[in-house]
C-alpha cells in the first residue's frame, strides 16, 4: 500500500534551469498557480459589480478584508495601514493553499518546509529592513528591554537575540508541522479503511470506524487550515509591530 508520505512527493512536469539553478515546473508550482488563479477569480467576482449594497461575492470579500484590517488595526495601530495589502495577500495566499490542499488528489504547497521557510524568511528580513529604515541604529534597542540591571545586560541581550532569531523558525515550522501532521493523519486513517476493506469477512463492517474518524478529522483539518493562515498573518502583524512601533 502507498506510504502516507507519498502525497508530499514533488513531481517534475517540465525541466527548466535558470543559471544553473533547478527551477523546474513541478506540482508545487502548479498548485501555487492554482491558488493564484482561485484568488484572482474570487477577487474578480468580489469586485465585479461592486456597489453600495454588496452582492454575495462582495460581502464575502468585504468580510475577509475587514477581518484583516481589524487585525492590523488591533496589533499595529494606525501606522500599520500601509501594510494592509501585504498582509491581506499573505493571509489569502496561505488560506487558499491550505484549503486547495484539502481537495482529494491535490497537493498541499504549505506542507513543505521550503515554502513556509521562504515566506517566513522574507518576513524576517522585511521586519529587519523596516526596523532599520524607520529607526536607524536605534532599532538595536529592541534587544534591550527597559529597566534591565546593567549586570544582567550581556545575558539579556544574548537571550533577546536568540528569541529574535527563533522568530522565523517558529513561523515556518508551525505552519509546516500543522499541515504535514494533519495530512499524514488523514492518509493513515484512509489507509485503515482500505486495509480493513481488503481483509474481508466481518472486518469489512469495521471499516466504517476509520471512515467516520476521517470525516471528523477532515472537519478538524478545515479548521486547522483557516486557523494556521490566521496565526501566520497575526504573527506577521506582531513582528511588524515591533519594527514599526519601537517602544523604548
Amino acid at each position: 500500500m502507498a506510504s502516507p508520505l507519498e502525497q508530499f512527493a514533488i513531481r517534475r512536469y517540465a525541466d527548466l534551469s535558470v543559471g544553473g539553478v533547478d527551477a523546474s515546473f513541478t506540482n508545487a508550482a502548479l498548485f501555487m498557480l492554482v491558488a493564484l488563479a482561485a484568488l484572482t477569480l474570487f477577487m474578480w467576482l468580489g469586485t465585479r459589480n461592486a456597489g453600495l449594497v454588496p452582492n454575495r461575492w462582495q460581502a464575502a470579500l468585504d468580510t475577509l478584508h475587514e477581518f484583516v484590517a481589524g487585525m492590523i488595526d488591533e496589533n499595529i495601530g494606525p501606522r500599520g495601514k500601509a501594510y494592509l495589502p501585504f498582509i491581506f495577500s499573505l493571509f489569502m495566499f496561505i488560506l487558499a493553499c491550505n484549503i486547495i490542499g484539502l481537495f482529494p488528489f491535490s497537493y498541499t504547497v504549505t506542507s513543505h518546509l521550503a515554502v513556509t521557510a521562504a515566506l517566513a524568511g522574507f518576513i524576517f528580513i522585511m521586519t529587519i529592513v523596516i526596523g532599520f529604515w524607520r529607526h536607524g541604529l536605534h532599532f538595536f534597542s529592541l534587544f534591550v528591554p527597559p529597566q534591565t540591571p546593567v549586570v544582567l545586560l550581556p545575558l539579556i541581550i544574548l537571550i533577546e537575540l536568540i528569541s529574535f532569531l527563533s522568530r522565523p523558525v517558529t513561523l515556518a515550522v508551525r505552519l509546516f508541522a500543522n499541515m504535514t501532521a494533519g495530512h499524514i493523519l488523514l492518509k493513515v486513517f484512509a489507509g485503515f479503511v482500505i486495509s480493513l476493506g481488503l481483509a474481508g469477512g466481518g472486518l469489512v463492517a469495521l471499516g466504517i470506524l476509520p471512515l467516520a474518524m476521517n470525516v471528523a478529522l477532515f472537519a478538524l483539518e478545515l479548521l486547522v487550515a483557516v486557523v494556521q493562515a490566521y496565526v501566520f498573518a497575526l504573527l506577521t502583524c506582531v513582528y511588524l509591530n515591533d519594527s514599526i512601533n519601537l517602544e523604548h
Binding site: 536568540i162 527563533s166 517558529t170 515550522v173 508551525r174 496565526v231
Partner: peptide
C-alpha cells in the same frame, strides 16, 4: 501550545547558534 513550541524552537536555535 504556541508558547510551548516557542520554548522548544528557541532551545534548538540557541543550540544551533
Amino acid at each position: 501550545t504556541r508558547y510551548a513550541a516557542e520554548i522548544a524552537v528557541a532551545t534548538v536555535v540557541g543550540f544551533g547558534l
